[in-house]
Nucleic acid binder design. Structure first.
Lengths: 358, 358
DNA sequence: TTGAAAGCGCTAACAC
DNA sequence: GTGTTAGCGCTTTCAA
């Protein structure tokens, strides 16, 4: 409430005894029953205008805020959605987290953040907590396509939407990007630019994201009748959030491949792998965009500055659709599960064109 | 429970009727009272070994998980901490969020994520929700040093720890970095490298972070007897998470200053301002590290790759201390408020040394 | 349209 | 050391 010219009184909602007002206090002050107050405030059923006004006045007078804990227990559901992702430090997931949180808030839900590091044990533990908190819904990037713990959540009939990755054990709504097409497009661009020994740096195998991106790579090469050389497929199996480990791993493995296999292009299949991969290229004495072409999945803050060609995912749209699907399920939609696939955008910059062609 | 060679049964915890087991069910099965079950599981008071074993067996048999909603209501507190930051898309905050969430989880707390965009109205709304959810504690980056809504939380005696920024209206524990010293160090390095017209790009004025960093700049110049030229201080007042707006704003404003004032160095005072600032430099026809030196606060994924000298904050330590202080307060510590200041680390790379000195 | 009453599942006094 | 009892604050039957 505004007290005087711009001064806002942020009351504490406490009475003289330091107690929060309850629905009973409001009811007493408005001369009605707690049930009526509940109905008036939740809007579930009609309350006559006079009574309604009295209730609102009492609410204002007492600075009443409903106690969510009580409401939660009674309804056996909290107004929260669980967001279980691999790691918020990954800019892709950060963008998703941001968009999910914004939309959840707009619909009255809080967002509980969980970072699984793609660790099935952690994932399971988070899910346990989330379920025991009776979250209204779940947005998850499964650590493994056979993510049995997520299947359990689905069976416990908590609405679940998978983002970025699929699961095969249960059917859940899924929102992701056309990984095969995205990488395929990158392969096309590189081949058309004259590259023929294209290496690819891939994250953990257990996610559908990683496997699909490799499939896109194989399919792409096949389309151009270029044989797949398994030695050019660089697997990093570092898990989750350890930036340094990821960096070192990508640098080491790709560095070796560059030395031994002499690729003329590299596709980096996710954001966290980019720094180490670029370092590997530099330390091998190559120059990105001059004697080795590079295309990377995901956008980093400085991708544009360094002229890195990227396959960019529409994070806002992905999160938007995920929340929309989740809200529909939470509203009781029991239809068959849906999958929404976005086409990633190839943002062409200097790194994907070789200037030092012979 | 492991059923057979590696197969794990993730039971749903439902009985034949599809109902979750309650503490009463466990009590009945173990032949004790619900209170004893509660005590055994929470460990608050001694329970004789035999009974304890029976209880644990019953818990396992029924696949019982305590209902947190009930526990929350009874205790008038949820096992949740509120994390109210400006924007998770900012890598600094993402790193803090990650570390906070990890530690919170280790101590049995869930983390609710809120992005305020440094908007006082949003901040207030989030705080209202968080308080009505009876969070056990709050970790906040106040949008404004006169953040009355946070003061209200402090008065409602919810433990609060401020991170990255101070508030002046209330006393709350605070964990941050020595901004003045950090920027001062950067100024020293630039001046010692021969720069004398040092521009600085600063974020919103209302946060203590921004003002302190400018103070560090002024103090630094004064130490070297270089007069402060106000025209070299570039203020961006874009708020919160709009990456594009920040980019454009920083680029436009710094671009103008480079054209008009011909600085030989730029200090960029936070991560989100870096891309636009670097773009401004490039588009003005200058080259970072050749004819214009650059030092930037905060680390980005590609800072090392582009050779950007940075003033790096120890995000894990910051978050670690914030959580530690918060846990102490939640445990009832009512001592005077504390402030923990970390020294940022100057990571010297190519951008801060001018190679094209006459 | 409104009220009375029950109860969500747990925990904390207080007894024994 | 364990049981009994009461009640956290709300929502939702059910009845009037």
């Amino acid at each position: 409430m505004v007290v005087a010219d711009g001064v806002i009184d942020f009351g504490t909602g406490l009475d003289e005894a330091g107690q929060m007002a309850t629905i009973k206090d409001v009811a007493a002050r408005a001369g009605v029953s707690p049930a009526t107050v509940s109905r008036a405030l939740s809007g579930v059923s009609y309350v006559s205008p006079g009574i309604d006004a009295r209730i609102r006045k009492a609410v204002a007078d007492l600075d009443y805020t409903p106690n969510r804990l009580a409401s939660n227990l009674r309804r056996q559901s909290s107004m929260t959605i669980g967001l279980l992702i691999s790691d918020v430090k990954n800019p892709f997931f950060a963008a998703v987290a941001r968009a999910v949180e914004d939309l959840a808030t707009q619909h009255g839900y809080s967002t509980v953040l969980c970072n699984s590091d793609d660790d099935l044990v952690k994932e399971r533990r988070y899910l346990d907590v989330l379920l025991s908190e009776r979250v209204a819904g779940l947005i998850v990037t499964p650590a493994d396509e056979h993510a049995s713990s997520i299947a359990a959540a689905v069976e416990a009939s908590v609405p679940v939407v998978c983002v970025d990755r699929r699961i095969v054990d249960a059917d859940a709504d899924t929102v992701l990007v056309d990984n095969i097409g995205g990488v395929g497009h990158a392969v096309d661009m590189l081949v058309n630019g004259g590259c023929s020994r294209i290496a690819i740096v891939v994250g953990r195998e257990q996610t559908t994201t990683a496997t699909e991106r490799v499939t896109g790579y194989r399919d792409g090469l096949r389309r151009h009748s270029i044989p797949v050389d398994e030695a050019l497929i660089v697997h990093s199996d570092v898990r989750g959030g350890d930036t340094t480990a990821l960096y070192d791993d990508a640098e080491g493995r790709l560095g070796a491949v560059i030395r031994d296999e002499n690729p003329d292009a590299v596709i980096i299949t996710n954001g966290p792998l980019i720094p180490g991969s670029l370092a590997a290229i530099t330390r091998s004495g190559r120059t990105v965009g001059t004697d080795i072409a590079v295309i990377a999945f995901d956008e980093l803050a400085l991708s544009e500055y360094v002229g890195l060609t990227t396959i960019t995912q529409p994070t806002d749209d992905i999160a938007g659709q995920a929340v929309r699907l989740l809200l529909e399920r939470m509203a009781g939609d029991a239809g068959p599960s849906r999958e929404i696939v976005f086409r990633p955008k190839l943002v062409e910059r200097a790194s994907s064109v070789l200037t030092a062609r012979p």
